[in-house]
Design a protein around this nucleic acid. Structure first.
Lengths: 109, 109
DNA sequence: TCATTTATTCTACATTGTAGAAATATGAAG
DNA sequence: CTTCATATTTCTACAATGTAGAATAAATGA
């Protein structure tokens, strides 16, 4: 039952990675999503999603230098991999084609 | 754990409803999604998703006239309800805000 | 060493996604 | 009226994704 496109939250997390670029680590990703979308995000949800996408090869991670400025554990930075970018593209294109010609944000009913 | 936005497939199905308008019944919805997105869709997936969204008040359904032209069971037509339209709008807007300023379909890596 | 801070990891469960066989309802043919 | 072919929905079971929050870890400075 291997899927080749993204779930809703996976989609949002990948967009956050692109958006944050080198700054993409768990806590920051969560903050970015909360600020942009206005919805609250459990930190566990972010990591679970990232871990699963890493297992699929969609993202990779590396530990940052332990040079935090005011204490605290080292950051784990994530970046999108080619397969993740492709899945993102597929999902974006599928939605885009479904949306073609329909008014989605005005007088939908 | 009540969600106020859509899963990926729910999202696509709602877009299909808008797109098909009065023609929106299970088999046709499936066909529309397959044609637009290029992915194959199990008919059970369509109904399960529609049934769950109906339970949430996102869509409603009514049975069509049993006046099929070449035999076959009556169609069950679906339409999007106000709450579904709102959820769709929220999902679209969340994605849209996450996408703002990032190149999603070109040179993403 | 302890308190504080920042961040990740873990565990458990809810919701959504998926597949395909089974069932239902019709019209047409015999 | 019985059977066949067709169109469509319904059902069942399981896999994948989403979510929550407590627990744990690692670093700093007093």
């Amino acid at each position: 039952m291997k899927r080749d496109y993204l779930g809703e939250f996976e989609h949002i997390v990948l967009l956050a990675l692109l958006r944050l670029d080198k700054q993409a680590y768990g806590m920051r990703i969560r903050q970015e999503i909360e600020q942009r979308t206005g919805r609250s995000v459990a930190i566990g949800a972010v990591y679970a999603t990232l871990d699963r996408m890493e297992a699929k090869g969609y993202v990779s991670s590396r530990l940052g230098e332990p040079t935090a400025e005011r204490g605290g554990r080292a950051k784990r930075f994530f970046r999108i991999e080619a397969e993740g970018a492709e899945a993102l593209k597929r999902s974006e294109e599928a939605l885009s084609r479904m949306r073609l010609g329909v008014r989605v944000t005005r007088g939908m009913a």
